[in-house]
Nucleic acid binder design. Structure first.
Lengths: 113, 113
DNA sequence: GTTGCATTTAACCGCTTGGTTATTTAACCT
DNA sequence: AGGTTAAATAACCAAGCGGTTAAATGCAAC
């Protein structure tokens, strides 16, 4: 799924995760978002475009400013993928674990403990 | 957290996600993993290194082969980050929603509905 | 309408990435 | 030792990324 590509790629950058964390506290302008970082404004603007492409935020005009807000849908998609796979993995490990225990008990029966 | 960088970056590639999905069905050799894809073996080998660096899999020697297995810990880390943030986001949206409803009721009181 | 502010776009740079083919390493089997 | 198989490494390439500075855009306010 191409949506997942964008979402995970967007989340792979610490600056972008920090921006998202900031936005979880409330909407903010580009300037406000840029302020805590030591990079230029165009760099932040690019990060915001990545987040927007990943559907993680929306930007809307307000006078001269662009106000950014979270858009949780994409995060849900990513979360669903991870959780679904985590369950599969754990089932797999449970089966493996059961198998190993079974093996162990057989070895014990043979006196190979 | 640098671990998250690696994990999310690893998950951002569809080939790598497919490899993980395959491994959820059980361990596999590099050749077996490469088989369904139309890319060269070295390409798969690189993907596996990325997954290994992200702590999503381990590779162990078995005769001439390298057997790959899932390693769920890193996925847990990523899952935790997403879920934690999702909760924050949703709280935020709940508060916003409550605020908007409050606003709405005030406007209605003023007859501006 | 021009000055000023907030942001984006353009053009560029160095590094990484995902891919290739060719070569090397490692382990097994005679 | 020699040959075969499985996988990794080397060397390379084109494209993408995250950053920069400089220029352009959009809007407001005088």
């Amino acid at each position: 799924m191409q949506q997942l590509d964008h979402t995970f790629a967007a989340l792979a950058d610490p600056t972008r995760r920090a921006i998202l964390a900031r936005l979880a506290l409330g909407e903010a302008t580009v300037g406000e978002l840029a302020e805590p970082f030591e990079v230029s404004l165009p760099a932040i603007s690019k990060h915001l475009k990545v987040l927007e492409t990943a559907d993680l935020i929306i930007r809307e005009k307000r006078a001269q400013q662009r106000v950014c807000k979270l858009k949780p849908e994409a995060l849900k998609t990513a979360s669903d993928w991870i959780e679904q796979n985590r369950r599969m993995w754990e089932e797999r490990f449970d089966r493996l674990d059961a198998y190993l225990r079974e093996l162990q008990s057989k070895e014990t029966d043979n006196g190979n403990g």
